[in-house]
Design a protein around this nucleic acid. Structure first.
Lengths: 187, 187
DNA sequence: TATCTTTATGACTGATTAGTCATGCTAGTA
DNA sequence: TACTAGCATGACTAATCAGTCATAAAGATA
């Protein structure tokens, strides 16, 4: 992957988060990235494609990060907690990417193409969540609802964290939120 | 309030939800509303102001709807459940307004002005949530985190509901989600 | 009916923007 | 040094859009 492509991605993520899709022109992105206006269209056929790519790649990065070290966790609770902790860590370390995913998910830009391309983001979790329901570890709810709740709690936790200062404080909130989630979904 | 103003608000809500802020021109909104392009600017000084107004008025409507009949509920759990049920009902009945609030909250458009103007949306709940924490009914978490979690779970529940068919099914999910929320936050 | 006020219209404009393309640059090869 | 291939440039353009304004219609008042 080219150096300039990466610069454009970084710049676009930042500007879209700070000013929204509407108020971020391709010229501005190029300027922020330190490349010519034409260069952007060398790597991305259109602004919309750039936005979709940003989403797909951010989701992939997140997914990879969540899976790392997962197999070491033995119990279902530990597995889920591992994913929870890493999801929150990732969001704090990649604030622009996190906010972008959030913005994009809420917007109607999501094309069917991108929806499908990232359908596998939580695939890895589906198996053990299903297994846990069968084992009676967690309440009898549908998998999509389970993921939806995880996602909603994750998002609101991170949004809450961004209003706080202090690393220790944040760690405490992340643990607290997980306990709330776990109390809620476990049997 | 003028008739045309209302038509513009309805049209704008619909189009913004369907096409996003970027791909919805003021001309298109006027056309959908059945008024002249100039008329929009008679009621709203700018597109941005229109967007802000949409947010503020939707939030106010929601807030009013949530408070209705609240005083009849005796226990804290019943009060919160009342708010939860009405929040979900409102979202299903006002899908565009709900999606708009969601979109807008995720976007950076939120100006400080609108943030302040709607700060009172959940004011009414603050008192009895605080009281309940003191009474030991719910876990010792901060009020903002409590509201953040409520909001996150509400949003993800409604998003999940929109993928389903059948009123009875939906009602079941709403109850299920509330139980998860309540198990999570209560002591 | 005549006069005044308010509300509505839509053609128009200045500014902005996504995307193009002819040209330039750089690095690899011989 | 001469040639080539592909990356990079930024001035340019066709299209679009937010917002204006001169004009007109509709209501109100007397």
């Amino acid at each position: 992957m080219s150096d300039k492509r990466e610069l454009i991605i970084e710049a676009a993520l930042k500007l879209f988060c700070e000013n929204g899709f509407q108020n971020t022109s391709t010229a501005l992105i190029s300027k922020e990235a330190g490349v010519a206006t034409g260069t952007l269209f060398l790597y991305f056929p259109s602004k919309e494609e750039l936005i979709n790519t940003l989403y797909i790649e951010s989701k992939k990065e997140l997914s990879t990060y969540l899976k790392e070290g997962l197999s070491k966790q033995k119990s279902f609770k530990l597995k889920i907690k591992h994913v929870w902790m890493r999801a929150n860590e990732w969001a704090l370390e990649n604030q622009y990417a996190f906010r972008f995913i959030h913005m994009f998910s809420a917007s109607p830009y999501i094309s069917n193409v991108s929806r499908k391309k990232v359908a596998s983001t939580v695939d890895f979790a589906e198996k053990f969540v299903l297994a846990s329901i069968k084992e009676g570890v967690i309440a009898r709810i549908s998998i999509p609802l389970f993921f939806s709740i995880f996602d909603g709690l994750w998002t609101s936790t991170v949004n809450h964290l961004s209003t706080l200062r202090g690393t220790k404080n944040k760690q405490k909130i992340i643990e607290q939120s997980f306990e709330i989630f776990w109390k809620g979904v476990s049997k």
